[in-house]
Design a protein around this nucleic acid. Structure first.
Lengths: 240, 240
DNA sequence: AAGTGGTCTAGACCACGGC
DNA sequence: CCGTGGTCTAGACCACTTC
């Protein structure tokens, strides 16, 4: 038998995908039993070790729980702690649709603080995108992000209103985002923020400044976000 | 061959232990090559899949990095972000001395929200400790923490003004704190907070609600903290 | 070309869970 | 008891990195 299927995917990953699809499609719900190792091996005409490898991978991802002597079961939906996720992905993980309005997109070259955050020389050209995030009608966040203009030529022509910036970077520019450092504090809404978020000036807002790094440890995006306090909170898990 | 060695440990775990020991003992340093799968299989007189299983486990733990075609190498020491640290420990890690004033210590039994956060039945007795944290003269945080009264009899007699609550729990009560879930948002200072933190009422403050869990995954402490925004910010690292 | 990790086979026995 | 996951064997070929 050929080691890989028709497409280039290893067999164990194709098995994983069939299971993932059935969970995401709602066919399998948390607590439901997944096909056993032996069953998968029979169904996919594959060795036991390969079926096992597939399930072990899904368990490591937290999608599935394995109990010796009992079976393999769909894991309860876990809260994603300390995961770097785009707004689009966050919404999707809560079963909601992302909704945002692009306020402005342009290139700038004299915002020194932002250049410094991206580790660029002073005066560097940067792409600047301002977006208001909302759910249904109510706006709840203003996010301004900066990217080095040199590396992302043509990004401004992408349909940012619709699709995710993360997705565009990872797909179109082949950039692998790996981690982000965030600084969180509270501040009072200034005139512009108050107006865009439909709240009185001086109201408390959560401010999150985020530097997102690519796999080569180079900073790729700097984001400043202001969040309406009563509509947004941040969840973190810390370990001892 | 017997599936397990003399002791009850699976072979692959014993292989892992020999490698862990050599790393912890300083014999292998970050970047050094670890024995290859085939080498381990030969040395331990074990099948390739078993040697492989051992290395895969170490990789999942982050102890080792595997590069196809190159080999398996000791991973660089991971920096610990998002660490659960007491106020005392945080200050110490910045070379400062912790300074706090106990405002009140008492037992309460009708704060239902707090009982719920600690997963206690309604009406349960809890120890409640209020402390103001400060640097030099300026107060910058009000922290109120709750603990189940049953488990921590006599805690109120400990010298909390001086030593760490964490230290007391870990030493006196043999509780191993393992992780905490935090919820962060922004809010306006109410009268009491404003007075204690020497700031105008209505000013934005960072609010952090924290549930700290022991090693048995039982909640042990619930802390609500209000932090002066201009003197405190939170740093988080998120991973993709 | 030699060595490495990645995938895969076709079996085996064990420890454990639920019926 | 039967089915489950956990461990393990003794091989195989492939893709990749290093030299």
């Amino acid at each position: 038998m050929p080691p890989n299927g028709r497409n280039g995917l290893p067999v164990y990953q194709r098995i994983q995908n069939t299971i993932r699809d059935r969970i995401e499609g709602g066919e399998l719900k948390p607590g439901d039993a997944v096909a056993s190792e032996r069953e998968l091996a029979r169904l996919h005409r594959v060795s036991l070790m390969t079926a096992r490898h597939a399930l072990a991978g899904l368990e490591r991802e937290g999608i599935v729980e394995r109990r010796r002597g009992a079976g393999t079961f769909v894991a309860p939906p876990r809260i994603h702690f300390n995961k770097l996720m785009s707004y689009t992905e966050q919404m999707a993980s809560r079963g909601l649709t992302a909704c945002s309005k692009v306020i402005s997109t342009r290139t700038v070259d004299h915002e020194e603080e932002m250049a410094a955050r991206l580790n660029l020389p002073a005066g560097s050209k940067m792409i600047k995108i301002e977006r208001v995030r909302h759910t249904s009608d109510e706006p709840f966040a203003l996010e301004t992000c900066y990217l080095p203009a040199d590396n992302f030529d043509g990004l401004l022509r992408a349909p940012l209103g619709r699709s995710s910036l993360f997705a565009a970077l990872e797909r179109e520019y082949n950039v692998q985002l790996t981690y982000a450092d965030e600084e969180v504090d509270a501040t009072a809404a200034d005139g512009r923020v108050a107006q865009l978020l439909h709240m009185p000036r001086g109201f408390p807002v959560l401010r999150i400044r985020q530097v997102i790094y690519a796999s080569n440890a180079k900073p790729v995006i700097y984001v400043v976000g202001f969040y309406r306090a009563e509509r947004h909170s941040l969840f973190i898990r810390r370990f001892r």
